[in-house]
Design a protein around this nucleic acid. Structure first.
Lengths: 196, 196
DNA sequence: GTCTATATCACGATAGAC
DNA sequence: GTCTATCGTGATATAGAC
């Protein structure tokens, strides 16, 4: 519940973001948003056209956040492999799922071009960034030349998104970690240094 | 709409399965189920205790179906690699998503031990079967001995589940296929025969 | 078994007072 | 800008006729 320290539209957006993450678009009602934001009906319809409009603002912000978080790791220090590894191993609240990816299971989000767009753009962006890293790693001889950047990018992102599914199904983050370790073991560049 | 050729409880279960796949648990109302099944309110509450009870029957059947479909491929002919490949490449209605996996994004399903159980069991089963194939492949020298069956199983299943997310985000099955190809390119056993 | 009321509450939005 | 009615509809379940 956001009591003070934020403007009303801000509190509405943040409450919506939380609820979309927890319950999805279909499972999120204006009433629940208002209760969490500590606002009345009138406030919401004054600042936003309705539920879809508010959801769009919330989804855009969540999408931008996630993109920035991913970019921080993917553009960070280290070799291409190390940066992909850092992306896969970055701290996550696994059982909560992906705040962006979970929206793809929402029929009303998928049915709306506007609501789906930020989701699509975010996922496409991360996938593309990983693809670029793979291509760079190939040039450096870190990845096998036969690998396709776009395909590996898709596989990496899919492992993360699917990892959430496995974890939530089992009620434990362990399955997510197992999937990531499995992918990393397949992706590990052949040791070129002193060891082995 | 199921008009004839099925008993009423059967029509109710099948309608529920369809709607759970399309809209999830939260997005599926008894009214919508009844309309699709061509039944009245009384019928449903006569045969089932309520929405959760009917959903449980539907989820159980969908889970059993999926498990059988997967087992048919995983226990099929071919080397371990070929059987995993066949599982990954098996025909799918990608944009509809996974009828079992999508339930993990449903807050009410995850909150209910009973509803989550069939989902968990199905996913654990498939993951375990792939793990066994990897171990078998390792013994045959088809996979690197350093690979962990359970981890690769998780990675394979996660790639599939995440592939649905990528595909639905972009509105095209292409991303699913790319992820699968990417994983297969990482998993491909080193050619041991005449070539290379 | 199946049907049609009916009940109760929530949903999503609007109107208008303050 | 924010609030409290109020509206029409749908969700979920029960009651009781047939």
């Amino acid at each position: 519940m956001y009591s003070g320290c934020m403007s009303t539209p801000e509190r509405l957006i943040e409450s919506t973001r939380e609820l979309l993450w927890e319950r999805g678009y279909v499972g999120t009602s204006p009433k629940a948003i208002l209760e969490r934001a500590g606002a009345g009906q009138g406030s919401m319809y004054h600042h936003f056209k309705g539920k879809p409009d508010l959801a769009l603002a919330a989804i855009r912000r969540t999408a931008d956040d996630l993109r920035a978080t991913a970019e921080r790791v993917l553009a960070g220090p280290g070799t291409p492999y190390e940066r992909i590894e850092a992306y896969l191993l970055r701290e996550r609240d696994v059982l909560r799922g992906c705040p962006v990816g979970r929206l793809t299971m929402d029929p009303d989000v998928i049915a709306s071009e506007e609501l789906r767009a930020p989701v699509d753009e975010t996922i496409a962006f991360i996938r593309q960034r990983i693809a670029e890293l793979v291509e760079e790693g190939k040039r450096q001889g870190q990845f096998a030349p036969g690998l396709d950047g776009e395909e590996i990018g898709a596989a990496v992102l899919a492992t993360v998104q699917g990892g959430y599914v496995l974890a939530r199904a089992s009620g434990s983050p362990a399955a997510f970690d197992a999937g990531v370790r499995g992918l990393l073991s397949l992706l590990t560049p052949p040791a070129t240094g002193k060891d082995r």
